[in-house]
Design a protein around this nucleic acid. Structure first.
Lengths: 110, 110
DNA sequence: AAAACATATGAAACAGTATTCATTTATCAT
DNA sequence: ATGATAAATGAATACTGTTTCATATGTTTT
């Protein structure tokens, strides 16, 4: 039900699938089917990821009929992404150019 | 030589051994032997961890004779730890109480 | 209450990462 | 140059987390 430690929190942030979902939720809150659609990920995979994201309170949930609408906990996540992005730009501009990396793009943050 | 993406960065932060080393470097810069001593971790394990931490530029290195002195990139790491700590206190006070978790303790940050 | 839809869950298979241990490289002192 | 110390590296093993697939749960509609 809860994340047990800091490393669990970072572990969840490190997972590419979770990052893809975070990226998508940066745009707008979405229910599970919408997330699966927008990210091209399989439904059960999305559910498993959302479970972990929720345990760490990286996302919030709101029931709406049979749907569940997930939204990003921007208060915590956006500042962290901004710090990491600044870090990458300064310390490792190289890694910003890697193709196909699943990283979160800053432009979404602005 | 470099970290390839955001998920690598978070992955490195998520690892308990790396967290232990980060914790120790919060106190003061140390060479490899000192880190191994202060953390009770084996030398090669420490070296492997430091390699990953350095690739992500979470630590800096400075040669000093046969020693290598590692120091924490506080500019990036301290703000992230502060955000996560605030997050945990607010969203998941429970997880701050878990015994034996390898998490970074905030009091060191202040 | 049955059918249809949305999401969650469990467990096995699989993949990726960390640890360990033996060895190597590098630097310093003699 | 040799021996001693400090740290890094490679590769095999062990470990842990992720994906997948089948199925279960829950809600709404008829």
């Amino acid at each position: 039900m809860f994340c047990q430690s800091y490393n669990e929190f970072f572990q969840v942030l490190a997972n590419p699938t979770n990052q893809t979902i975070i990226n998508s939720l940066l745009k707008k809150p979405q229910n599970v089917s919408e997330i699966a659609e927008s990210t091209k990920l399989e439904q059960s995979k999305v559910s498993h990821s959302l479970k972990r994201l929720y345990e760490c309170k990286i996302v919030h949930v709101k029931r709406s009929g049979k749907q569940r609408v997930y939204s990003l906990n921007k208060e915590t996540i956006v500042p962290i992404l901004e710090i990491v992005d600044k870090h990458a730009q300064k310390m490792c501009p190289h890694c910003l150019k890697i193709e196909g990396s699943q990283r979160v793009h800053t432009n979404v943050l602005k």
